[in-house]
Design a protein around this nucleic acid. Structure first.
Lengths: 180, 180
DNA sequence: ACTTATTTTCAATTTATTTTGAAAGTTGTG
DNA sequence: CACAACTTTCAAAATAAATTGAAAATAAGT
């Protein structure tokens, strides 16, 4: 009895820390084009040992069923969490990928899809404008700028490809090589 | 006379392309935590040979004076554009850093300030929670996760430091080394 | 000190994004 | 197939972010 009280007290800080982590991850996420609820659900699942149901998400984060559902689906799309079915139960439970390396890689991949790929597409199409002006300085400058942007985007792509394709140890070795 | 008409026609596509670039950069920017007007002003200055005044920005982008002013200031804060004074004139003109390498580095630096630094700060403070629980699995797992996040953030920091400190050629060489 | 040109500020408005909640849809079970 | 258990959808409401515009502040010239 006394023991369980102490246990409660001891546990307090851990629970507080987890809560703070959830909030921080939510704020952080919103700076990264991930909406707050989505990031918070993700954080909640990251710190939860057991798979969690939609109702638990609603309760722990105080959000509506619709919101919980939509963002759980989005997290599945991003491949950050997965559906877990408990035998005998119909209700869906969700658990997060816990390997932070994989998490980061998947977030980066999604962001690239939204942020870099469309820009490269546009830049590429703009470089196709007719070259009757090729002698004009203004024209040359513009094309040069587009090329430079594309070159940079290409480097960013290369790095993220590396990231996406390699495993953690491998990437860190490459990184060290690069830094030396 | 005829010549100037042809000149107009020829120039058309370049101007169209520039306009499309401005729009695209605006959309792109908004995926990166940079508001549309800020990104569009930046694009406008990137494709403009001559320094441009607030009034020209307002006219070319169809935005209010307040908006133009605020975002021009923000771009100066980010070190992406600078004030140019024309002798004899009181009005301010602005011109953009044209070196895309530098532009990218500066954007990355600002984004890191907003997105990575505060998160690392929080993670660090969460790792300080009392370790009376050190034997508990749940506690250990949580701390391990925080450590992993920090390790990843640290790697991201290292890469951007490299980026910020090196010049373009140097960085691309490092990149090649890394890729090999 | 006054006038005029220019920039800055910021409360109010507009626009964009997120969230709600209840109805509609789906699925498994007797 | 009817019911209950659960999930999905989406129009409406709430919230957050960007933009306006006009007044206040600043600076330059006379």
């Amino acid at each position: 009895m006394m023991l369980s009280l102490i246990y409660q007290i001891k546990n307090m800080k851990l629970e507080e820390a987890k809560q703070e982590f959830i909030d921080a991850w939510g704020t952080f996420g919103s700076h990264w084009g991930i909406n707050r609820t989505m990031a918070q659900i993700h954080a909640l699942l990251l710190v939860s040992d057991e798979p969690i149901s939609t109702d638990e998400v609603m309760e722990k984060l105080g959000v509506s069923r619709g919101n919980a559902n939509m963002n759980l689906r989005a997290l599945i799309d991003w491949n950050l969490i997965e559906r877990k079915l408990k035998k005998g139960e119909r209700m869906e439970y969700f658990s997060a990928e816990k390997d932070i390396w994989k998490v980061a890689v998947r977030i980066i991949r999604e962001r690239r899809k939204k942020e870099i790929d469309p820009m490269r597409q546009t830049i590429k199409s703009l470089m196709d404008i007719d070259d009757k002006n090729e002698k004009k300085d203004e024209y040359k400058q513009f094309i040069t700028m587009l090329k430079d942007i594309d070159e940079f985007a290409n480097a960013a792509d290369k790095i993220t490809d590396k990231l996406v394709l390699s495993d953690k140890g491998w990437f860190f070795i490459s990184l060290m090589k690069m830094m030396s």
